[in-house]
Every structure is written in C-alpha cells, then in structure tokens.
Amino acid sequence: MLTLREKYYDFDQISSKVFKCRRDDQFFTMKIVSILNEENQANNGVPYWIIREISILKELDHINIVRLIDVMTDGPDLFLVFEYLDNEFQADFLKNPKMFMYPQMKKEFLYQILNTVAYLHARKILLRDLRPENILVNVRTQVLKIALFGAARTFEAPLEAYSSSVGCLSYRSPEVLFQFGCEKYSTPNDVWAVGCIFGEMLLHRPLFSGPSDVELLDEIFTLLGTPTEETWPGVTSICGTCALMGPPQQPKDLAKEFPMLNPDGLDLLSKMLCLCPNYRISAEDAVKHPYFKGV
C-alpha cells in the first residue's frame, strides 16, 4: 500500500491542519484530523464522529457536497483527502457581500441547499448541523458546497432517540430545543435550519440568536407565535411544562417582517418555519415549491 508521501506531493499549507496537495495533475485539499483526545490519548480509538463523517461522506456523490476522495492513516493522525475548492469558494457564505447583490442568487443558493438536504434525507442521512459556516459558495459560478459532516448521522425509520445536544444553537428546531437530553428528532430538524438560513439571507442577520435554549424558544415564539395543541398536537406533552413557553404570543405577520419576499417566498418560509415538525414541509416538497419556478 502506498504511503501518504508516495501518493500525494507538493504540499502547500492553507491553515494549521489543512493543506493543498497534488496527485498526478490534480489538486486536492487534505485535512489532518487527530484521533487523540484533549489528554493526548486515544483511549477509545477513532472518535465516533470521525467514523460517521467518513463513512457517510464516502457514500455521497453530489455536486453540492464536498467530496471525500481518500482516507489515509498515519499513527494517531488521519488524513482526509477532499476535492480541491479554489479560492473563489468562500466559507461562511452569508458573510460574502456579493451574496446579497442579486435576489435571484439567494434563490439559487437556497434551492441548492434544499436539493442537497433532500438528497441526504433520501439516503437516510440527517445533517443535524447545517449552518452558514459549513456552506461554501463560488459566487461567480453560483455553485454552493456543504462541508463538515461531523454531526451527520444515518437514521432508521422509525427514528430512534438521538442526542439533542447537537448543531449550532441558532439553527436548532423547537422540537430539539424542547427536548433536553436524548430525544427523538428527524428530517424536519434539517428543514428548520434551512428556514433559518433563508431568513438570514433576507435579513442579513441571524433570524434567531438567543444565547440559551429558553431564550431562543422565546425568540422563536415572538416571531411565530406560541404553539398550541391545535397548531402543534402533543406540544404540551413534549415540552413537559408550559412554563418553558412563557406567556402566549400571537404570530407576527411575516409579510411585514419580510417585505422583500413575494407571496410564494412567504409561503415557503412559513412552511419551513412551521413550529410543528409533523406539518413542516419536507425538503423534497420544498424543492418543488412554486417559489423556485424558473430556477
């Protein structure tokens, strides 16, 4: 078996753990991941998230997902070889000022995100940590790529209990916020995150940014109204105590909050940010929404 140096050469450091390298006439990005813990020990072998990330990425072949080409081991280090994305690909895509120049571009990128999420869900993969920092875009070619699958995992239907301490707080769905500890959640959780990203694209700021679960829930209910048994059957049994929900609030008029959106856009946003996960639109249906006519 070829060693790392025999297989790849012309290493060029991009950051502390990321290198640009070459094999034949092709460039690749190499990410070095240590399997050692904080105490510099590999007590439990390869961390579970690395096993999940790599085995999931190995199976995927989609234009909007950063492709994993190769995995090599050397002592306590793993070398993940990804497709090379040139400098035109900017990470944390919402921080790119060019993103907001054309409304059509936002729609195009939103479509690509939803299309990717639908692809993953159809392969029984929950993304669980979708946020702008994990999304790279090339504004010139209008191609978007989702990277970093540390919190992704496969699911069986019906879904089992999964850890709820997952994903960036701002993009966590109400059902995950309600369930402290290990509870069940599913594909709608990813759709909620896309809805938050959609809102952020429009407002140029995070849609919800509460520093804690309870404050974040309060922000969500301020915009979308407090859920009731009518709008979210079983909500009282999920949250355990209604104290979590604070005083009842009426939903705001999204048309006033998002004046830049046409009726189709408002309809899609409201369906993606539906409080009840059972009623939330699926990624598969979202890509077929009239809002994307002409994309």
Partner: peptide, 11 residues
C-alpha cells in the same frame, strides 16, 4: 415525522 414517511420508500 419520526417515521420519515416521505423518504422511506426512496431509502
């Protein structure tokens, strides 16, 4: 939503 009905046949 835990049954992932929309996707289960595709899966």
């Amino acid at each position: 939503e835990l049954a992932a009905v929309e996707y289960i046949d595709d899966i």
